[in-house]
């Protein structure tokens, strides 16, 4: 007998008063314990879907069920299962993080004697306990983002929905946030994530749905999706002074100039590099080094802030 899904939407539709059809029959299933990515371009319908799941948007038709409970049948019971980290900051800037967390717990019916230690626990785990009794307007953007995660944990949800939780957050804090989220996912909480940082989704999520123009256009395992990706991009370092040279045309390769010393080559994974090098040599352009296009700066920064020096980071790892 298959497990009851953590989340199931059935033909969910939403048409706004201005006639915009944000969701055109979204059917989705997220298994319990999953770390699920919900991706899509701006305006694709992600936030509308999350709005319906968190009771902030009324669906036009269709149903959403959390752990088998329909949002139409028992909204309260569904909300007790869900924790929401919204995209926009949405807490009272004149209240303290501690009060915000304890009050939100109260809205879920959790008495203050239970809520207080719980607030301390999550504010500590998210490293903002030292700001617990300051007004939130005094906090940095990264702290506010972490507070929203702590707040979402106050009802200890079985399903945590994160809508671009790391937008505008620096890399160190982002990593500590993911450490926390992966920890609670390992402990059994189902996580649904929307993000524009695709490398985040790639690293963290096991399954993925891509939504576009209100429709699910892909819903599969992350591994399966990545296997479909056939394009690779290389960064080529060239000596200064080649700027005047015209770039060669290489069949199957999209070659672009980034700056006076850098080229970018996008090609199929099955395409060989020899023809590219031959074409560049033919124009007198020497390639001094080559690397895959990954965010090396991010890695370097993390090593610097976590371990002091770039070399030590690699050695420690």
């Amino acid at each position: 007998m298959p497990a009851v899904p953590a989340l199931e939407t059935v033909d969910l539709r939403k048409t706004y008063a201005n006639g915009v059809e944000a969701l055109k029959g979204v059917s989705l299933r997220v298994e319990p314990g999953d770390f699920f990515a919900l991706l899509g371009p701006n305006g694709a319908g992600k936030s509308t879907l999350i709005g319906i799941l968190s009771s902030l948007v009324n669906p036009t038709s269709g149903d959403a069920r959390a752990f088998g409970i329909s949002i139409h049948r028992d909204r309260g019971a569904v909300m007790r299962q869900i924790g929401l980290v919204p995209q926009e900051i949405n807490f009272n800037q004149f209240e303290t993080p501690f009060d915000i967390c304890v009050n939100v717990a109260g809205f879920y019916g959790i008495p203050r004697d239970v809520a207080r230690p719980r607030a301390e626990k999550y504010l500590n785990e998210l490293r903002i306990w030292d700001k617990a009794f300051q007004q939130t307007r005094m906090m940095s953007g990264g702290m506010k983002r972490r507070l929203m995660i702590a707040r979402a944990m106050m009802n200890e949800p079985r399903l945590l929905i994160l809508d671009e939780p790391t937008a505008g957050v620096d890399i160190e804090i982002r990593r500590s946030m993911w450490q926390f989220i992966t920890g609670i996912n390992r402990a059994g909480t189902t996580v649904i994530l929307t993000t524009h940082y695709l490398e985040e989704a790639e690293q963290l999520c096991r399954n993925i749905a891509i939504i576009d123009h209100g429709n699910i256009v892909e819903n599969t395992a992350m591994r399966t999706l990545l296997a479909k990706l056939d394009v690779e991009t290389f960064i080529l370092d060239v000596p200064a002074g080649f700027a005047g040279e015209a770039l060669p045309e290489v069949p199957g390769v999209k070659l672009t100039r980034i700056d006076a010393q850098t080229l970018e080559a996008e090609m199929s994974k099955s395409h060989d590099l020899n023809s590219l090098f031959a074409a560049l040599s033919g124009r007198g352009i020497t390639v001094t080094s080559l690397r895959n296009k990954t965010n090396r700066l991010e890695e370097l920064f993390v090593r610097l802030v976590e371990h002091g020096k770039p070399d030590q980071g690699r050695a420690a790892a």
């Binding site: 902030l56 309260g76 019971a77 007790r80 929401l84 949405n90 009272n92 809205f107 019916g109 707040r151």
Partner: peptide, 17 residues
């Protein structure tokens, strides 16, 4: 104020009737 600052969403997304 809670609508303007959007923290009314804390109430709307909770199980409270």
């Amino acid at each position: 104020g809670s609508k303007f600052g959007r923290y009314v969403e804390e109430l709307l997304a909770s199980p409270m009737p």
